[in-house]
Design a protein around this nucleic acid. Structure first.
Lengths: 352, 352
DNA sequence: TTGTAAGCGTTATCAG
DNA sequence: CTGATAACGCTTACAA
């Protein structure tokens, strides 16, 4: 907290505060040299809080995510930070997917930040009851709240992802295909599950109720879900798991039960990780560019902050792609299949 | 940005701004009921920026880390956030270990935050040239800047960690033990390397220059370092790798060369990960509680913010422990060895 | 180009 | 318990 103010500088140089202020803003002033010298000598730093009070902006953007420890969200944050440049700083909040904490965070952020990038835990959340009537710019990432259809969002193409994943298992000859899904109250949980169903239907495979386990996106949840699948009278021969944490849990279950992958049970996960090709067997996954997702979100938010409601709500979908490794029994490694190869560039990734 | 101010509320109720302000601060006022009602109806939210300008505090703490994508730093952030409670929010900055960016961040944070938790990239950094004379509370985590000896710090017991790791390899009968170290200009790089040397010396094993590779804490760096070790006329039979990223890189190199672990080359890493026991072979590592490290750092910072320089600089060291899995050839899994079992609790972990 | 003065929204002080 | 007033540090008309 620098206690030396602009008036100290002004007094030292013998000019008015306004002159110093103008000098700071890059205007031409006569004593610019002397002022800069005084600033250095006194160690003056403008008080941003005071500046913000005048300008009405804070230069802060809140990033509300479930858990920064999940590398997927960490990448989103990193991408967003990069896109923010030097103008906006990031205020990070972990919610642990607790709706009360989300609500608290949003309450607290209002009037403290210029905008919010938000990964809500549930599609029917009420955390936003207070933001509704206000004009605080907001962008959903990865998940949305249903009742806020007019809010910008940057999602992954989860439906296609679930479809590709399931189709990949089908293509390997599997018919007893299970799905460990995320909460169906969340956007990605719901959409990936829908992709799973659609792929089965497309190939005329009947959905077995026991093969669909709704879990919670956690390691423990994935572990328990896989355990329950393995305990079935007729266990599945392949499992599509809806996120990275649950996949870790599921793999731990398989390891514990000493079940061979992919021979006995083939596995395909969602979201990649630096270690996935080192685990045994290397994990085949649906992946997407989280970094890009974060960057687009920030970019959209900044446009919204600057332009207000000049443009209609954006609903952007980022492509997913299949990374084939060993966990489905395929022999070719690192083959990539993208939903479309055209829109990997930031600008081109914008689909309404 | 709520444009309804305290004076709107005051006018509506027919009292003065001061009365509303007092009501908000929990004082007894006659029209409390009416005021609360008006606040609800108008949707008034106190402007925190204005409040901050008065109070001189921002309720913000900057967290300057190399890369939030590294789960270790993510855990630090998480721990710090938890310890911050509801009073302080976290402003996150990734530096990518670029000194210029660190300097920029610190410049920018001054006067904007109440304190800084900082993971500097280099021990002789000059990023702090401007913070020197000021009284902005600061705590180093994981690494320090040498010229700031009077600044609080929360480090891991790197020396012991490096020692334990190397001793573990020695205990498995290895004598050709290499070390892929971090930058010797960084605290953990230097200290872990010192632990390596000390353990070798203690057992009378001569240090071989070729077996010591200074790298940069990155995946690519670890990969290249391991490749260079493997290219040696007499390659090592065991390698201690100084951080998680480099370990990933090294494992990729081993995999690429189809070299068997632990049979041909035993591996021990530094810092654990949720996936380390799923990779092939399960990785033996030195681990520590990053969450705790972050929490202690925040706690120390908050004390400093509140108490000023009431107490002498703290130099806290968090314990490390050995997690034995398969990558060193040991058969027993998940045996844990801690430097001391006493100080796992937050309060007890404080050593000067 | 420069200085004066008003004001951003809140809270602390001080009479009443 | 309450209300007027000043102040936090800075920016920006408005005049000069």
């Amino acid at each position: 907290m620098s206690n030396v103010t602009i008036s100290d500088v002004a007094r030292k140089v013998g000019v008015s505060e306004s002159t110093v202020s103008r000098c700071l803003s890059g205007f031409n002033v006569r004593n610019a040299e002397a002022i800069r010298k005084a600033i250095k000598e006194l160690g003056y730093r403008p008080n941003l809080v005071a500046r913000n009070l005048k300008s009405g902006r804070t230069g802060l953007v809140a990033l509300i995510v479930p858990d920064i420890t999940n590398p997927f969200f960490a990448s989103i944050v990193r991408g967003a930070e990069l896109a923010a440049g030097e103008d906006y700083m990031i205020q990070l909040i972990n919610t642990g997917d607790q709706p009360e904490r989300e609500e608290w965070a949003i309450q607290r952020m209002m009037g403290q930040v210029d905008g919010i990038i938000y990964v809500p835990s549930q599609e029917d959340s009420q955390a936003m009851s207070d933001i509704a009537d206000r004009s605080l710019p907001l962008v959903f990432v990865d998940r949305v709240i249903k009742s806020f259809r007019s809010v910008d969002s940057v999602l992954a193409d989860n439906l296609t992802g679930g479809e590709i994943a399931t189709k990949h298992l089908i293509d390997h000859g599997h018919t007893k295909i299970a799905h460990i899904s995320g909460p169906l109250t969340s956007t990605p949980g719901k959409e990936r599950a829908a992709g799973y169903s659609r792929a089965l239907k497309a190939d005329g495979i009947k959905e077995v109720a026991d093969f669909f386990v709704e879990s919670d996106f956690t390691v423990l949840g994935g572990y328990q879900a896989m355990m329950s699948l393995l305990a079935l009278p007729v266990p599945p021969t392949a499992v599509f798991i809806a996120n990275n944490h649950m996949t870790i849990g599921a793999l731990k279950a398989l390891k514990e039960k000493a079940i061979k992958t992919p021979e006995t049970v083939a596995i395909i996960g969602f979201d990649d990780h630096e270690l996935t090709d080192l685990i045994d067997p290397p994990l085949t996954v649906i992946s997407r560019d989280a970094h890009l997702q974060g960057a687009i979100a920030m970019q959209t938010l900044l446009e919204r902050i600057k332009g207000g409601n000049q443009f209609p709500p954006k609903r952007i979908k980022v492509d997913v792609r299949l990374l084939v490794r060993g966990s489905c029994g395929s022999t070719c490694r690192h083959r990539e299949t993208s939903t479309s190869d055209t829109n990997k560039v930031l600008s081109a990734s914008t689909r309404s």
